[in-house]
């Protein structure tokens, strides 16, 4: 180890390790590209999302006339729809993850920090929910409350926080007895302040890693819901809905499935690589 390396802080070291991970960096670039296109394409593309035309129904991809990904059964341009769908899918993934993050971190930190009976009861609740088929719960929630897009965000987030809670609880227990927490307790900081100021910031590493891996899971859940007709509804669209529509016409117009599927899989892979890269960067001892 050189002198220059030892003088850098842990964050800089982790960042350097992450930047040296080729898979993870490829993931970052690929994801940024997809996200950027998802933002820009619907704004600038010559075709609108709902712009249908009967004289160009289900045309294969071509460079002419800006139908790069072809058109669907209603003559709508797939290129703009694929990236518009990406907006929704990425947004659902992000927002649902944030919701899961907030619930999971608050739940886990409280249980772990307070300990005792509170911990026992709170974690038993998590155990019980853990044993449930989560997609079914989400479907029940969506069935009951209707498949409004905001509710889809909420339903996914409300169900996917369990692992986060377990991770944070473990960290909180490990941190609870460390000296700096003890001194915070000694000067009578209220538990809420100790949680917010010390426990949560110190548990942040594994939380970031898990959140990165949760985003693709949530995108898949949204896609599965939409695929089943229980998620995003027309005129909105998402990758899952596009894949569902494409799968129905796979024999006549395979590109309708192909392009959204490729975008979805690339996004999955990118998040997985970034998540793995973050884990290796933050905890270099974890893997050989």
């Amino acid at each position: 180890m050189t002198g220059a390396q030892t003088r850098r802080g842990p964050v800089a070291l982790a960042a350097a390790r992450f930047a040296a991970n080729r898979q993870a960096m490829a993931g970052v670039v690929c994801l940024l590209l997809i996200a950027l296109l998802a933002i820009i394409v619907p704004l600038v593309w010559p075709h609108g999302i709902e712009e249908a035309s009967l004289d160009r129904i289900a045309q294969p991809p071509s460079l002419a006339d800006f139908h790069w990904f072809g058109t669907d059964a209603n003559g709508r341009d797939l290129f703009v729809r694929a990236f518009y769908g990406g907006r929704i899918s990425l947004a659902v993934g992000l927002v649902a993850t944030v919701i899961a993050l907030v619930i999971g971190v608050a739940w886990g930190a409280t249980a772990g920090y307070l300990g005792g009976t509170v911990d026992l009861v709170m974690m038993r609740v998590v155990d019980v929910l853990y044993a449930l088929p989560l997609l079914f719960l989400i479907i029940v929630l969506v069935t009951v409350f209707g498949n409004n897009i905001i509710l889809i965000f909420a339903a996914i987030g409300a169900v996917e926080w369990l692992t986060m809670a377990r991770i944070v609880r473990g960290q909180a227990i490990a941190l609870r007895n460390r000296e700096f927490i003890e001194s915070a307790r000694a000067i009578d900081l209220p538990p809420g302040r100790i949680l917010a100021r010390y426990i949560i910031p110190n548990a942040i590493g594994p939380v970031i890693v898990y959140a990165t891996l949760l985003i693709p899971i949530n995108i898949i859940i949204e896609s599965a819901l939409s695929f089943l007709g229980l998620g995003v509804q027309e005129p909105l669209t998402s990758w899952g809905l596009l894949i569902s529509q494409g799968a129905a016409q796979i024999d006549s117009a395979p590109w309708l499935l192909g392009f959204p599927a490729i975008l979805l899989v690339l996004t999955m892979l990118s998040f997985n690589f970034i998540g793995d890269g973050l884990r290796d960067a933050l905890d270099p001892g974890a893997r050989g």
């Binding site: 599965a224 695929f227 796979i250 499935l257 899989v265």
Partner: peptide, 22 residues
């Protein structure tokens, strides 16, 4: 395997159908 983890059933199934079924 890395690719397989990122491929959900609703993407795999239509492609398998296209290849082996159609």
């Amino acid at each position: 395997a890395s690719l397989g983890v990122a491929l959900p059933a609703f993407v795999v199934a239509p492609f398998l159908t296209l290849l082996f079924g159609i």
